[in-house]
Amino acid sequence: MSHILQIENLHVSVNDKPILRGVNLVIKFGETHALMGPNGSGKSTLGLAIAGHPNYQITQGSIKLDDANLTEMEADERSRAGVFMAFQRPVAIPGVKTADFLRHAATNVRRPDRKEGQDLIPMREFRKELKSKMEQLKIDPDFARRYVNDGFSGGEMKRAEILTMAMLSPKFAILDETDSGLDADAVRLASASIAEIGRDKMGLLIITHHDKLLEHNPPQFTHVMLGGRIVETGGAELARELHDQGYDRIRKSYPDAEAANQQMLAKEEPLAV
C-alpha cells in the first residue's frame, strides 16, 4: 500500500485569529513522524484542522490524502477517507455504549459509501473482532458496555482512543498528546499499544512533549513547531534533544516564529491550543 498525506502552505484561523502560518508536511503510509513544540505553537490546531473541526478555518493552502482534497470535506468524509485523530481530551457521550458507537463508526469507515439506515457490521462478527482487539490492547472487557468516555479516567480515555484507532484502522493517524495526564506505566503501555496497532500499518503523526511515547515508536522524522510554522525537521535524535534540553535553542534560532508564538500565547483564547 502506498498512500500519502500532503499538507501544503496551510494557514488556519480560529475566530479569525491566525494560528497556523504556512505549514508544510508530507507523511507517507508506514512512516512515523513526531511533532513537538512549546505550548501554543499550533500542534493541536494542525491536528484538528486535518480532522476537520468546523471552528478551524483553513484560509490558505491544502491538505490532500492521495488525490483527495480533504480541505473541501466534512469531518465525517475525512474520517471515511482514512484520517483519524486521537484526541487529547475526547468528549463523553452519555447513554451511548462504546461497543455500539464503535460498531457504527467502523461500519461507516469501512464502507465509505454506506447510506444512513443501511445495515451495520453484523453484531456477532463485530463483537468477536472488538473482543480480540481489546485483549490485544489489554483493555478490560467491561469497557465495551460503558458509555463512550463517560466517567473514564484520563488513562481509560486514552486507551479508548487507541482502541478506536485499532477498530477504524485509518491510513493516517494523528495522536494528540496521548501521553498527557498519564503516569509512566500508562505511557509505556500507550506507547506499546500504538506501536502494535499503528507501526508500519499506517502513517503516524505523534504530537508529544516527551520522548516516552516515542519509546516504541522511534520517529523517522521529528518536526518542531513554533509560532504556527514547522521551523525545523530532523530525525529521532531531534526529539531526544528537545526532550532533554527544551526549546531554548529553537526559540533563539527562529526569533520571528518565537515572536509570533508569544503573540499567540498573549491573546490565547479558550479554543486556541
Partner: peptide, 20 residues
C-alpha cells in the same frame, strides 16, 4: 464533531446523541 471524526454523518451523530 467527535462523532463525525469517527465517520458518523452529522445527522447520524445527532440521532445517536438523542438516543443516548
Amino acid at each position: 464533531f467527535y462523532a463525525q471524526s469517527r465517520g458518523f454523518t452529522r445527522s447520524e451523530a445527532i440521532r445517536m446523541i438523542v438516543t443516548g
